[in-house]
Nucleic acid binder design. Structure first.
Lengths: 160, 160
DNA sequence: TGTGCTATGTATAACGT
DNA sequence: TACGTTATACATAGCAC
């Protein structure tokens, strides 16, 4: 989608990678927003930037969709596990070894979560600005996309 | 992005809306997948179709990213609420009145969640197939996009 | 519902600023 | 780090299966 085709693999140059992230970050959000409006469906999308700042968009909101999805997963893992595994399905598990307390299946794990909350509180202020971006994205597809308007001059224009 | 430009508003004809959903559903996933690979960032995207089937993609997985995000939100809501509200920020709250138990801020709410899990278990089997789709999406951007290859014949080809 | 087709709208790579 | 420009790659509307 540019002067040249690029292969989908990690951009090695950290500087270029940051530029690529900046340019492509809005892509999924716009697509997701359009889909949610056109088809009136629930959707949530969350991205953590290279600097680990969260960018999100959700319809009606990320929390609702994410929680709904997680509950589906957890219900599947806890009770239907035996039957599902019989079909050869097994959740791939977290390969990055994060300690986010992913998959709160048991009440006991909630206590561990509480500890995580305290840790997160230290960094929360820095995240607030980035989180605000998600609200702005709602407007994107509804505007005439001002930034691209200039291109109208260049675009091929068939007989009509 | 087709023979005609369409405005981003709900597609009124239910039949057309379903078609539009089918065609556009993969869009956000492909963009999200490309972004996660190119920039090596964490991303999660979940869509509930018109028929309420979940489609998801996540890197490293939806659970990790979604949980991480929810924890950030919860931490912000619980402890930093006073300071944040002072800046005029208040979470818009869930307008759809779902009973998903969205936003598990307190340990006491975990018990309510457990009740929800039981309800979800009844419908889980129907969702499994749709959930599998999310794993396939990973391949999309890495393939030469076979379905579009034909278009190479048509595409404008400058001197080089 | 999903697939394949072609014409056209959009996103974005490479380059500046 | 983000924004403007242009050429090009990609996504998709409308159509037929």
């Amino acid at each position: 989608m540019g002067h040249r085709k690029i292969e989908i693999a990690i951009v090695k140059d950290p500087n270029m990678r940051q530029v690529t992230f900046s340019k492509r970050r809005t892509g999924p959000f716009k697509k997701a927003n359009e889909l949610s409006i056109l088809c009136d469906v629930e959707i949530a999308i969350v991205v953590f930037s290279i600097g680990n700042k969260p960018y999100s968009f959700g319809h009606p909101c990320v929390d609702v969709v994410a929680t709904k999805f997680l509950q589906l997963q957890q219900a599947a893992n806890s009770s239907n596990a035996k039957q599902i595994d019989a079909q050869g399905r097994n959740n791939p598990s977290n390969e990055l070894g994060r300690k986010e307390g992913c998959g709160v299946t048991q009440l006991s794990q909630c206590k561990e979560l509480q500890g995580s909350y305290l840790e997160f509180q230290h960094g929360v202020k820095d995240y607030i600005d980035a989180i605000e971006v998600s609200e702005c994205m709602i407007l994107l597809a509804q505007e005439p996309m001002v930034g691209i308007t200039k291109q109208v001059t260049t675009k091929r224009r068939k007989k009509n």
